[in-house]
């Protein structure tokens, strides 16, 4: 009997130890598509006992997961909303933001588009539907096809905040699941326009359009001269602890920030 008890106890310790080595990260597709999986891969190479569960379904899901306690780290490309902070507060969760990288949201058109530059006002008018034909902004006549992220995406709401004066998207805009899909649709459609993070500006078939004379580069993002630059975040419940804290420290380290730059985000320093 004592042997059996000892075995069960040992098994429980082993299971709990194994669970303690798992980091659950949920949220932003912008961060979760490339950057965080690469960070996780490198971290796991240095810490073989650690496993990751990464779900990239939009910033809203990441913030909700931290509030619910179903993830240690919530990836978000936007700040938590007041309603989310309120929901967290009601559950005794202290939402802590940590900037892990900067991103520039690039305006992209089809590579064959004659559009060479746009102003901030024109971008707002296009995405809100005030302007519906390329001829109104110096392009060839043709109906503008707008591609945006879906509503659970932090990028979706960030774009409204940064580029659309908080107005609603044009009703004709088409919602895409991620940056890759937006780039792919714009590449297929000569009348397409969309926005993607810096990590996706080199996708085939698309071209970045300068806005107010600025294009998203490391320098223009860090100096905040590019109008659509934004920080991206990890959210945790208070100070992270355990393996999650170590992973965050790795993300902010020189090695982690090199990976940030490798996937075309802008490092925090």
């Amino acid at each position: 009997m004592n042997k059996l008890l000892a075995f069960v106890a040992a098994a429980l310790v082993a299971v709990s130890a194994a669970q303690a080595q798992k980091i659950v990260i949920k949220g932003s597709d912008t961060l979760g598509a490339k950057l965080v999986p690469m960070l996780a891969e490198e971290y796991r190479a240095q810490n073989p006992g650690v496993s990751f569960e990464i779900a990239a379904e939009g910033s809203t899901t990441g913030i909700t997961a931290v509030i619910d306690g179903t993830a240690q780290i919530g990836m978000s490309s936007r700040r938590a909303k007041t309603t989310e902070m309120s929901a967290a507060s009601a559950k005794g969760v202290s939402m802590k933001p940590l900037i892990v990288a900067y991103d520039g949201m690039a305006v992209i058109v089809n590579e064959n588009s004659p559009i060479k530059a746009l102003t901030k006002k024109q971008v707002e008018q296009i995405f809100t539907g005030d302007i519906t034909d390329w001829s109104a902004v110096g392009g060839n006549p043709g109906r503008i096809s707008i591609y945006t992220r879906n509503t659970s995406s932090g990028t979706y709401s960030d774009w409204k905040e940064l580029a659309m004066n908080r107005r609603d998207y044009a009703s004709s805009s088409q919602k895409m699941a991620g940056n890759e899909q937006i780039a792919a649709e714009v590449a297929k459609n000569a009348n397409g326009i969309g926005y993607v993070g810096l990590a996706y500006v080199s996708a085939p078939g698309i071209r970045v359009v300068p806005v107010n004379g600025a294009v998203p580069t490391k320098e223009s993002v860090l100096s905040k001269k590019y109008p659509y630059a934004r920080p991206t975040f990890f959210y945790t419940n208070g100070e992270a602890t355990g393996e999650a804290a170590k992973f965050i420290a790795f993300t902010l380290s020189d090695a982690g920030q090199k990976i940030v730059e490798k996937v075309h985000f802008v490092a925090i320093r």
Partner: peptide, 17 residues
């Protein structure tokens, strides 16, 4: 920037509290 984010978060927390 990081301090600014923490400050903003604290202000919002205070608001909701």
């Amino acid at each position: 920037d990081q301090e600014a984010e923490e400050l903003k978060a604290e202000l919002v927390k205070s608001f909701v509290h």
